[in-house]
Structures are given as C-alpha cells and as structure tokens.
Nucleic acid binder design. Sequence first.
DNA 1: GATGAATGAGAGTTCATTCAT
DNA 2: AATGAATGAACTCTCATTCAT
Lengths: 188, 188, 188, 188
Amino acid sequence: MKEQMMKTSIELFGNKGFRSTSIQDIVEANGATKGTFYYYFKNKEGVLVQIHESFIDHLLNGQEQIMQNKQSTNHEKLYQIVETLIRNIRSNGNSAMVFFREMRHLSDEKTAAILPKRQLFQENIQKVIEDGILMNEFRQDLRTDMLSYAVLGIANWSYFWYEPDGEVKENELTDIYMSMIFKGIEGE
Amino acid sequence: MKEQMMKTSIELFGNKGFRSTSIQDIVEANGATKGTFYYYFKNKEGVLVQIHESFIDHLLNGQEQIMQNKQSTNHEKLYQIVETLIRNIRSNGNSAMVFFREMRHLSDEKTAAILPKRQLFQENIQKVIEDGILMNEFRQDLRTDMLSYAVLGIANWSYFWYEPDGEVKENELTDIYMSMIFKGIEGE
Amino acid sequence: MKEQMMKTSIELFGNKGFRSTSIQDIVEANGATKGTFYYYFKNKEGVLVQIHESFIDHLLNGQEQIMQNKQSTNHEKLYQIVETLIRNIRSNGNSAMVFFREMRHLSDEKTAAILPKRQLFQENIQKVIEDGILMNEFRQDLRTDMLSYAVLGIANWSYFWYEPDGEVKENELTDIYMSMIFKGIEGE
Amino acid sequence: MKEQMMKTSIELFGNKGFRSTSIQDIVEANGATKGTFYYYFKNKEGVLVQIHESFIDHLLNGQEQIMQNKQSTNHEKLYQIVETLIRNIRSNGNSAMVFFREMRHLSDEKTAAILPKRQLFQENIQKVIEDGILMNEFRQDLRTDMLSYAVLGIANWSYFWYEPDGEVKENELTDIYMSMIFKGIEGE
DNA sequence: GATGAATGAGAGTTCATTCAT
DNA sequence: AATGAATGAACTCTCATTCAT
C-alpha cells in the first residue's frame, strides 16, 4: 500500500507538480482514504522525501558500481554513467522529473540530507573526467567542473523531451550524445 | 505598477514556484492590494502568460538577429546563440527558470500560443547545425534534432547552478562549452 | 461584523470551550463563511487573544479608577473591586469564563503579553490590603498575597454557579461576601 | 496498565485539557498503542468518567469521615474540610483541575451520575455552617448557601496558583484561609 | 491481552477571485 | 486607478474509533 502510494505520487508529482497534486488526488488514485495516507506518511513532504531518497540512492548506487570497475577506462565509465542516466528515463522518468524540479519543496532539514548526495553524483562525474585527463584519455586543458555540469545538462534535459518508446532507442541516444561529447561536432 | 508587479512575480515564481506563490505575496511585495492586481491582470495565469511571452519573444528576437547575419558562419551562429542563452542568466535568471519550469501551469489555450515559439527556438538551433553540415562546417553524420536538444540542455542546465557573480564569466563559460561541443573532450 | 464575531465566539467558547468550538460554529452563528472569519482574524487563536485583551483591559481599567480615588478607604476599595468583579458576571459572564479557563490555549508569546496584566490585577488587590494594614483598617498579621488569592477565588468561583437573574442580586452577593471577608463568620 | 493510563490521562488532561489531549498522546506516554486503550476503555469519555468518579468519591469519602465525627465542633469540621481540599492539591492537583474544568465534556447521562455528588460536597459544607449556626458557633445572620460557595472558591482557586513545594506549607495555607473565614480581616 | 492497519468525518487554514465603491 | 470586504472551494492534516488478527 505504502509502496503503491509512492508510485502513484511519483506519477502525479511528475505530471502536475508537487504543489498542484493534492493528497486527495493521491489517495483517490489508490482507492484509499486520506487517513490511510497519513498512516503511512508524516505529511505531504514525507512522500517527497522518500521519492528523493530512493531515487538518488538508486542513482548513486549504479554510479558507484560503474566507477569501481578497475577494468574499464574513464572513457568507458563516462559513457556508462550517461547511459545509466538515460536508461533511467524509461523506468523512472517521472522520478527524475520530481527529483530535479521539486526539491525546493523540501524543508531545509531534509534538503541538507539530500543535497550532498546530489552533489556527490556530479563530483563523481567530474572525477571520472579528471582521471581521464591524468590517463591521457582526454585533453589536458579541460575545465572539469563545468564539463561535468554540461554532461549532466545533456542527460537530464532529455527528461523533458525524450520519448523512450519513440524511434530512437536509449543506446542510440547515448551514442549520439557521447559521440558529441568525445569528438565534438566538427569534422577532423 | 504593472511592470513592477511582473518583475516581482518573476522573482517570486522563480524562487518559490508558481503554485507556492500567492497573489497576496505578489501584492505585498509591491505594497499594493489584491484589488490592484486584478485591475492589471485577468487572473493569476495572466501574469504567467505575460512572463512567458515576453521571455520567449525576447529570446527569439535575439536568435533571429543572429541567424539573419549573412556574414557569419554557422559555427559562429551556434556560438552566439549559446552565448545569448547564457548571458540571459545574469539579467533574467528567474525568467528562464519560470519559463522552463512553470509552463505546465498555463491552460491548454495559452500553451498552444507559446509552445510553438519554444519549439521554434529549438528548431532554429537545429537549422544552424543542418546548415553547418551542408556548408561542411560540421561532420556529415550528425543527428541534428538530438544535438539541438543537447545544446539546449547544456545551456539551460546552467540555470540550476551557474552563479553569474562567481569566478567564471559568461563568455568564459561559453568558450568552455563551445569548445566541447565543437571539438569534444578527447584530444586529436 | 468583526465585533459580532467576537461576541459569538465568547458565547461559544464560554459554553463549549475553545477547543470544542469550531470556526464553522462561529461563522454559522453569524451567517457568514469561514473566509470572512479569516479576513478578520489571523487564526483561531486570534479571536481568543482579542477576547482576553479586551476583558482584562476592561477589568484593569475599572480597578484603576477604584484605586485612584483618594477619598475612599482601602476597606471601600476592596469592596468596590469585588463588586466590579461580580457585576462583570451579568454583562460578561462568558468573557470571564473564557478568560480564566482558556488562557492555556494561547501561545507562549501571547501569554507573555496577557499574563502580566492578570498578575497586576491580583497585585492591586494585594496592595489595597497592604495599604489597609498600614492605615490600621485591617489586622496587622495578614498574609496579603494569599489573601488576595482568596478574594479572587471567592469572586471568580461565582462564575461557575452564580445566576445573575436569580433571587440574589449582585450587590447582595457582594455584601454577603464582603461581610465574611471583613468580619468572618464567627460572631464577636 | 489501566491504572497507569488513567494516571497519565490525568496528567495530560490537566496540562493540555481534555479536548487537546489525543488518545495518541495518552498511549505514547505509556509506550502502548491505540488498540490497547480501547481494550481498557470504551472510548475517550470513558477515562474522563473514571477520573471524575474516583476523584469525587475520594473527596466525598474524606468529607464523610470528617462530618461523622461526633467529637468535633462544626468549627473544626469546616477547618478539616478545607484542609482536605488543599492537601488534595499535592497528591491530586491535576485530578482536581480535570474535575472542575472538564466536566462539560461528559455526556448528559454521565453528568447526571456525577453532578449530584458534586452538589452533595457543597451541600455538606453548607450543612456544617448551618449546624454551626444552630450551635452558636457562627453568626446567626449568615447566608449559608452563598458562603459554602465562597469556601469552595477559596479552596479550589488555589489549584490555579498554589505551589505545594513552595515556601508556604499546606497547613499554613489552611490556617491563613480559615483565619480569614472565621475572623475576617478587620481587627476587632 | 494487545496490536496495527485503515477509516471518515471534520478540523483549521489558504487563496484565487468577485464586486461595490 | 485602486481598494477592502466577503466568499467558497479546496487544501493539509488530526483524531476517535473499528476490527481482524
């Protein structure tokens, strides 16, 4: 029941936004009553917190596994991280939407718990680029922090337009993006 | 007064979101009363519409001027478009925030008026890339639609983290980004 | 309207208690809507605050006038203060009820504003007794603080049983009480 | 467990009031769950009834013993009744608070069972005064009903301010009060 | 003897909106 | 051009209570 309510909440928050989704909306979508909602969650922010936590934890987890693989180059790691992000759209599209757009509705206290994880995800990307520079996989003159944001921007922006069931498959999209990131759009 | 109310609304919508900003908030920030608000705007959506329209019109206008310059290469045009987007953060950071995040609160009717302009902006970027391919400025094998989204993602994502008053200036940031877009991060 | 709502609130708080009176109760008794209530009062506590303030201010005001009269003895002053308290029952019975029973529902902040006034009222009674001792109107061995509470207790307790429209009139009741307070119930 | 829950309820009802105390509050303070509460009590009113009954029964019992003593004068009896009331503050302060303030939350049916006992307590005081008059212990011109309320008022009001652990002990306070009641505050 | 899941009625509150002035 | 009184619908949240286990 709690599980189910979270799923519905993600859907609704994703489509209508946190503020525009009422608890009535949530429970109606589950054939439950308001009382039940408050039995499982402290308040409306409570669901939001859980959505944030499980999303970023899941994302960080995937990233961690990619990064710990000592066999793969940093080139490969960066590819895989972006791939993971994009793959997330199909299974967790709305989760991501909620994560990136509704964080401001968390109290300062809850934000303090989640923001560091969010930053860690970005810093990990930055680290992969830095390591790639050291290993001569990437150019020496890169501004790694800004570039990590660029990578994030490319991947995350796809949440707003990418249709997982459309013509272009996830791995194709990743290829297209990584080709640009690695080689640029100018010919040699 | 109307002008001033719009400015305040942008600020508030940007910080707290459309739904979480009350008309009371807006008029209080202007030392006015609710009645005054409804004298100038039809309803709450009214301000949002105006914010959207003036923002996208301004953006399209700048883009138009860049594109019509027959002297510049497509390489240069792409650079300038991104530069414009990023420059917009300093002067209109919250406007952009509102534009990209709060569009869902427009009625279908109003969306129908603004969405095409939004798409036009993206299509213009796509067109510059396409023209660049024709002119042999860019590689021949590019998927232009996806790449236009990537460019938008990079630029727009900066709204979430870029501090206009920080160490990196707007043109530096543009350089860093365009260097990646043009040449990629791998060495030659 | 605001005035009227306060009156109704006093009635309802007096009969059913603060917590058991809903805002719906209040507005229904006034043929108004909840919105109107919140136009005039910040919240439910807001009415309670106003009731408390106007009651104690009115009481202190009456007390002040009695005490400033340089013609009257302390014996007379004490009589008049009790008389005032008892007279208050007819006109403001429920106000007093609310004042003495519902103060705990005020926030700490509001309590801090009202409690000193309440104490002042008691201290003034104490002062009259003290002055009476100095002037040899009263016995020398009195514990003035405790006695002031006793006087308050006698008068205030009448709120719980005294029926203003019953057989015994206010001034008779005052006579009965003051006779006991001054002379005691033992014969000489 | 039931005993313990009643104790906690008295504490909570006394501090926060009946309506403002939730069953959740009660069971949490006992490390139990709501289900347990409803195992022991029919409903929320159930606890209140029991508190009222055990309090007034205990009080009446004490009063009865005082009154049946054929050795003591009415003067002594009155003293002892007040003493009992004041002594009750230390051991049962909150019980008394609840008894005098929360009776209105009992249903008509339950009120009908308790109100007579409450009145009996007052009538017994009245009777002691009446007997005292007959025995020439007290003045002949007393209005016994009103005076019994005055005695109750003095004693009960102490619930609102008397600190059992303060400087003045219970028997001192009784002495101070009874001195006023018997002799008045004027010198002879 | 005790629990935890679920409820539903109603509580206090917010807020976009209207309208006479 | 601007206001202030009033509204009513919807919102978040609380809580006494039930019941299967």
